[in-house]
């Protein structure tokens, strides 16, 4: 009974290996199964599989990762809330004097999963953070007229690509940038200029261009709309930019809808030393183990993917949280936010149930936004309760054993959830 509702693991297995375990068999199996669709490897930006983190010093501390995560969450909240007050673009045009709120889009720094794609002809490989919480795909571009941050791969130079073209200011795709970035596009020598600001003062500004995108050797797309960044600053951790997978027409998912019919899936690797995948298109053998729930829209944030949480189970206990707590705040699923945020009522119920189940382990000090941390250093194995989410239309999804704890070290292992400030947030 106990085993049924708890995970028992070796404390050592909680700690990420220092070497990259090349794609695990299941991923390989998955990769081959997806012959008909295109599959990219997903790696953790700060792990030993990433070519970006050769400079150990570059890896942020856990406190920094968690702090960046909070900044991202604040910016998502402000995007969702600001949508309530946002005037239509026409209003803004009419009241030219109105200060257009700098769209605090999503914060990239904390997003820590990257994929490698090819751009241009001949194609240049670039590591981009993939982000279901934002729409515009961009990368840094030579000649970096204003500024480029340090990135691992050579910075893309459109002047050496036979297939690069600028988007003109008068084209309809140029005006689409307003909804994708929250900022009205600029114009420079008749070339459309994009401007995307992120919540942590990161930003990318540059030419809006069209280029050949190679997702894999065989999946190549001409005329892919992306941002060629001439002024880029921020916490992008050595990656070359961002792959936007949100719901706006400018998102990669929408631009490649013809081929992939707005269908994509991913698996995020369990440790920073293992490999996952991001695949586009419905694969013929798509595992029928997949259980579905409703994809809903977030009224104030139409770029986000909404899901309806109705309850949470800890061990064999259904938490005493009324479904209205979840429905009044709504929930989005975001590959770029690290720690799940819950309405405070829900978080305090989860925290109480988890602490009750873990009362035989010593609590230790909190780290950043995580307030339920344990010292496992004197244990060889530990047991902790399973956690599952109940979504609408009756789907109950168990989290993986690795999806419950955030491991700073063996003596600081934390419950990987945090509460929002206010249920109505």
């Amino acid at each position: 009974e106990e085993r049924e509702h708890a995970h028992t693991v070796e404390v050592n297995s909680l700690l990420p290996a220092t070497t990259c375990s090349s794609s695990s068999s299941s991923t390989k199996g998955h990769m081959s199964e997806h012959a008909s669709s295109s599959v990219l490897k997903v790696i953790h930006k700060h792990g030993p599989c990433s070519r970006l983190n050769k400079h150990k010093s570059k890896t942020p501390t856990h406190a920094q990762i968690l702090q960046q995560d909070q900044t991202r969450v604040n910016s998502i909240h402000s995007r969702v809330n600001s949508k309530k007050q946002t005037k239509s673009v026409d209003d803004l045009r009419q009241s030219a004097a109105t200060t257009i709120p700098a769209q605090s889009g999503s914060v990239v720094g904390s997003g820590n999963y990257i994929v490698n794609v090819g751009l241009g002809s001949p194609k240049k490989q670039l590591s981009l953070i993939f982000d279901t919480g934002s729409d515009l795909t961009w990368t840094q571009c030579r000649p970096c007229i204003i500024s480029c941050y340090k990135q691992k791969e050579p910075i893309f130079d459109p002047s050496f690509s036979a297939s690069y073209t600028n988007v003109s200011c008068t084209s309809a795709t140029c005006s689409q940038l307003t909804s994708a970035t929250g900022n009205t596009p600029g114009c420079d020598t008749s070339t459309c200029i994009y401007d995307i600001q992120y919540g942590d003062q990161s930003f990318s500004i540059g030419y809006f261009g069209k280029e050949k995108l190679s997702l894999t050797n065989t999946d190549v797309f001409d005329g892919f709309l992306f941002g060629c960044g001439q002024n880029n600053q921020g916490l992008f951790g050595g990656s070359a930019g961002l792959l936007g997978l949100g719901r706006n027409p400018i998102s990669l998912v929408e631009q490649l809808a013809q081929k992939y019919n707005r269908f994509f899936s991913y698996c995020l690797p369990s440790t920073s030393s293992s490999i996952g995948y991001l695949s586009f298109g419905k694969s013929d053998g798509s595992s029928n183990a997949v259980k579905f729930t409703t994809l809903s829209t977030v009224s104030q944030g139409d770029s986000f993917y909404g899901i309806n949480v109705v309850g949470i189970n800890v061990g064999e206990t259904k938490l005493p949280i009324s479904a209205s707590v979840f429905s009044s705040s709504g929930t989005i699923i975001d590959s770029g936010t690290v720690i799940t945020r819950l309405p405070p009522t829900a978080y305090s119920a989860l925290k109480a149930a988890f602490r009750q189940a873990m009362k035989s382990y010593p609590l230790t000090e909190a780290v950043s936004i995580l307030d339920t941390c344990y010292d496992f250093s004197s244990f060889k194995t530990v047991s902790y309760p399973k956690i599952s989410f109940v979504f609408d239309n009756g789907l109950t999804q168990d989290l993986d054993a690795t999806g419950i704890l955030y491991v700073v070290s063996a003596d600081q292992v934390c419950l990987a959830f945090a509460g929002n400030e206010d249920d109505s947030y």
Partner: peptide, 30 residues
């Protein structure tokens, strides 16, 4: 708003079937 973050998504196959209006999950996919 609540956010289902990437720690909780670990090792799950997360499927976005936008045309079908659904999000899916499958366990132990990588």
């Amino acid at each position: 708003i609540g956010i289902f973050g990437n720690v909780q998504q670990k090792r799950l196959q997360v499927v976005y079937d936008i045309a079908g209006g659904q999000i899916g999950f499958a366990p132990a996919a990588c």
